[in-house]
């Protein structure tokens, strides 16, 4: 493992020929990592929320993509990585954050002795709280973690539905006719906003193709699309099938950009706010 001392030294000497110390006395838990890299969009955002900017050595190249990242602007000043082992070795991180489905470079870096934290994909709001605290503890800022979680809970409270009946039936219509059901962050948030996710009633779990017939049998109160882009791609076009058209006709529709909740970050409260407002509209239009 690299000690923080040699790393500070390393930044001032020639990058290529710094001798790394592989001293055995250093263990991760005892010393706070000072040079942190992230190779995954989701950990990029958690890291920016929690760490002091000078401790971030690089973020994945997705972090500054405004179509995918909620923090594209903030990410711009940081160096980027493409998940390549060689880049990361050059950046000399003493902690690398990644997701469960991170880049394969993580394994080679692990075997080279780098400290790696693999953060699971968040499927519930509780997962988000846990992930925030996990990252905060790992980078030695547990108090900052608790503060971010507290702030997150406060925002959720501010924007969640004040009443829970009636629960309009809603469906998420995604690119190429996919929908989102059980065991997803989206479903958790729809629930909290006072909606009833039709996909869950249909027994759909995760991201699955939408059965057209079921849709005709169960009429919708509301529809949610998930377009990230200003210009609609063909995949996102409102469906042309007659059965779908009649199901979607005159149904109030909201668009929640996918980037809000593709990652489990506190920004999902924005989605909750948009959905809570939308539900009030829907309930009023029904009455």
């Amino acid at each position: 493992m690299l000690s923080s001392k040699t790393i500070r030294l390393g930044t001032t000497t020639a990058v290529l020929f710094t001798i790394l110390s592989f001293a055995g006395e250093y263990t991760f838990a005892e010393q706070r990592p000072e040079r942190i890299a992230s190779t995954h969009l989701c950990t990029d955002q958690l890291l920016m929320l929690l760490a002091e900017p000078e401790r971030i050595v690089s973020l994945s190249y997705f972090a500054s993509n405004p179509d995918m990242s909620m923090m594209a602007e903030s990410a711009r000043p940081y160096p980027v990585n493409h998940g390549l082992a060689e880049e990361l070795v050059l950046q000399k991180p003493d902690l690398i954050l990644t997701s469960q489905f991170g880049s394969p470079s993580i394994l080679i870096l692990k075997s080279l002795g780098y400290q790696v934290l693999s953060v699971p994909v968040a499927l519930t709001l509780e997962d988000i709280r846990e992930n925030i605290q996990t990252v905060a503890d790992a980078i030695g800022v547990p108090d900052r973690g608790r503060e971010v979680v507290r702030q997150f809970d406060f925002e959720l409270n501010q924007v969640s539905a004040p009443f829970h009946e009636p629960r309009p039936k809603i469906l998420i219509y995604e690119a190429n006719g996919y929908t989102t059901g059980k065991r997803t962050l989206q479903s958790d948030i729809l629930e909290m906003a006072g909606f009833n996710n039709l996909a869950v009633d249909l027994g759909i779990s995760g991201n699955q193709y939408l059965p057209l017939e079921a849709l005709v049998i169960h009429p919708l109160d509301a529809l949610m699309t998930a377009s990230d882009y200003e210009q609609n791609s063909l995949a996102y076009e409102v469906p042309n099938h007659p059965a779908l058209r009649s199901a979607f006709e005159n149904v109030p529709t909201v668009n929640i950009p996918g980037k809000i909740w593709i990652c489990g970050t506190p920004f999902v409260s924005d989605a909750l706010r948009l959905l809570t407002e939308f539900r009030i509209e829907v309930v009023q239009s029904v009455q």
């Binding site: 390393g10 290529l16 020929f17 790394l20 060689e86 070795v89 050059l90 000399k92 080679i108």
Partner: peptide, 29 residues
């Protein structure tokens, strides 16, 4: 590779027994 090590330095790093960054990059990556 991204590290931009010259071929001569690369061959030196390949045979190096010291764990320099260049040696780690060339030998392990």
């Amino acid at each position: 590779g991204p590290a931009g090590i010259k071929t001569v330095d690369m061959l030196y790093a390949l045979l190096s027994v010291e764990p320099s960054t260049a040696a780690v990059i060339v030998q392990e990556i």
